[in-house]
Design a protein around this nucleic acid. Structure first.
Lengths: 353, 353
DNA sequence: TGCTCATGGAGAAACGTATCTTCACCAAAC
DNA sequence: GTTTGGTGAAGATACGTTTCTCCATGAGCA
């Protein structure tokens, strides 16, 4: 009693294989009664077409790869930052609603896995410069869409936030709140996000004539972040406002500020880039920059599927299509000198206000 | 200039298709020099075997489905709770290290997606009673391993925490810390986790002769949690300790306690079940129960792959193999009346201690 | 010379589908 | 009476592997 194949259905319905295939896929020229009869027989036998055979025949698997560039040793920093998790969730959702499924794959080119799965295309998150994996996929003729502007590798399209504008907006926001010396907590890695953000910071500093005050650390190391935050606030030319590029920076900076007896926002203004809603309930709540990963995940997947299905612009060899998506600054108390109408009863404050 | 197939390799190497297949897969009887020559030619042509063809021929796709039972309307509560995210990450990792890839699929039986992907087996997280999807998979002869003791559906194996013991441990812990009236924040849904935990609580109450004090709410609704927390603390017979079954309960309870002027842990002891490390830095830090999702994810996947590859016990029709995994109680200040040797400098405390 | 055995390798049959081509049939048009 | 055209459906092929079966060769041995 094996699984029923298309042949069994054909035999049971007294028609040919062709007719079954056509009836089930809504193709060919068949009267409705034949269609419904075949469908009924197929249903009765519990027939499920073999995905493998269909893929082999049509060249389409309905599978999309999702690759997260790994920072440390672990195969995945997947849920390390809320950004990835949210982005992956949105991507999965978007793919499913168009009939595709998502396969999570390691960024390392372990052939035994990559070779074993038939992909129609791939989403790559944050490819490093000259990513060999992207090059290989391109060579195979597979469409690749990247989250994050690609550094010198051939992608079909890409989507990214306008990091430069976002940073400038934050710096202006902090300056407007009274900051004179704005510091930056940044990373040592060379990915586009880190690079563009840091450049924008330096550019802003030049423009307003402020001496750059920044500390960098390997973003994948959770301990290093706390140390770097401490280092930044321990400097003789201590900043009076800080923007942290990575998710955990908010809590790290808050802890460091506490250690040095700095009040937030009175003595130190704080903003960090994060998707976590933890920062709505910290004391004080921290202003965050959201990169809107849901929107990015959805867009990336839709672009990829468009490319797979041949919709949209033909793939050009030269400059791939790029889209810049807006970010959202969620302003909370940590970046406002004047507390915005405090709720109900303001409790007594220990220390001078 | 199409992608090279096995035929092209055979022609280029001057051997037969069989020889190429054998050489590349380490089978057959071939002298080493033939092997290496074929490998070299394949490499030169950039040959990648077609996963679809291999799957069709061997009946193995190397793909494992991962299904998260959805609570709300959204296709995924995926990253809603840190538990799922962590579990999924561990599962992905474990699968990859054995040469399998994970496909995330919706729990709803949308045939257009499920039918389009060739799966070797499926991991189901928290299947509801009489899950039709699991039954269908079973009918197709696919191995299914569930995270969470299955309620009346035919799985190959399952893994779960020992929820009853965990709850009892927590209640004893709270009682030892001085709690007299322990409340419970629980859910309205009928999944195994909620049911077993609630039963354990009621059982404990009977044993020690305490009147049960609990509020339930639909766990998938983030707002309802805060409301329920409030309701629990607003009761005339207000509890002096609470255990919350769901991840956000900690912050919700903390906020509610603040509203009612209750100090934690002096007036109210708090524990919740969560994988989030946010609770290490709340004020005060909150004691949490970790279900160790990494360990569960890894175990579940390994059991599934064992079943796929025919290792391990033969599938029995009656009682499937079940494994209970230990949980971990991470004790923090919120559940201890006497603060455990405070670090270094104890700052002045506002209000009486 | 015959026989067995081991070695190296080729041939061909699946796997289950989609689709291109062909074919029979019948009615209407020239 | 032969062409045309449309309808309904069957035949056959190809997708790219893996693997079962079988063959040729040459060595060892009686």
């Amino acid at each position: 009693m094996e699984r029923a194949g298309i042949r069994d259905v054909a035999a049971a319905a007294g028609v040919s294989i062709t007719t079954v295939s056509d009836a089930l896929n809504g193709k060919g020229r068949l009267p409705d009664e034949t269609r419904s009869k075949v469908r009924e027989v197929a249903e009765r036998l519990g027939y499920r077409p073999s995905a493998a055979a269909r893929t082999l025949r049509t060249g389409r698997s309905g599978l999309i790869g999702l690759t997260v560039t790994t920072y440390g040793q672990e195969p995945f920093t997947f849920t390390e930052f809320a950004y990835f998790a949210e982005m992956a969730r949105a991507a999965t959702s978007a793919a499913l609603s168009r009939g595709y499924a998502l396969v999570v794959l390691p960024a390392t080119s372990r052939h035994d896995v990559w070779g074993n799965v038939a992909l129609d295309g791939t989403v790559v998150i944050d490819p490093p410069d000259h990513d060999p994996m992207v090059a290989e996929l391109y060579r195979q003729g597979l469409p690749v869409v990247s989250d994050g502007r690609p550094g010198n590798c051939p992608v079909t399209a890409w989507v990214d936030n306008d990091h430069a504008s976002a940073v400038l907006e934050i710096l202006d926001h902090l300056a407007a709140a009274g900051a004179r010396r704005i510091g930056l907590l940044t990373g040592t890695s060379t990915d586009t996000y880190t690079r563009l953000s840091t450049e924008a910071y330096l550019c802003w500093c030049r423009r307003v004539g402020q001496e750059p005050l920044y500390e960098e650390y390997p973003a994948h190391d959770p301990c290093a972040g706390a140390v770097a935050a401490d280092r930044l606030l321990a400097r003789p030319d201590r900043p009076d406002a800080v923007y942290g590029l990575f998710d955990p920076n908010g809590t790290d900076l808050l802890a460091a500020a506490r250690r040095y007896g700095l009040r937030v926002p009175e003595d130190l203004l704080l903003v960090c880039c994060s998707e976590s809603d933890v920062y709505a309930t910290t004391e004080p709540p921290i202003t965050t920059l959201s990169l809107k990963p849901q929107r990015i995940g959805t867009t990336v997947v839709n672009l990829l599927i468009d490319a797979i299905e041949g919709i949209g612009p033909a793939p050009t060899t030269d400059t791939p299509e790029g889209q810049l998506m807006p970010t959202e600054l969620i302003v909370r108390r940590s970046s406002q000198r004047r507390a915005p109408r405090t709720t109900v009863s303001a409790p007594r404050e220990p220390g001078e206000a």
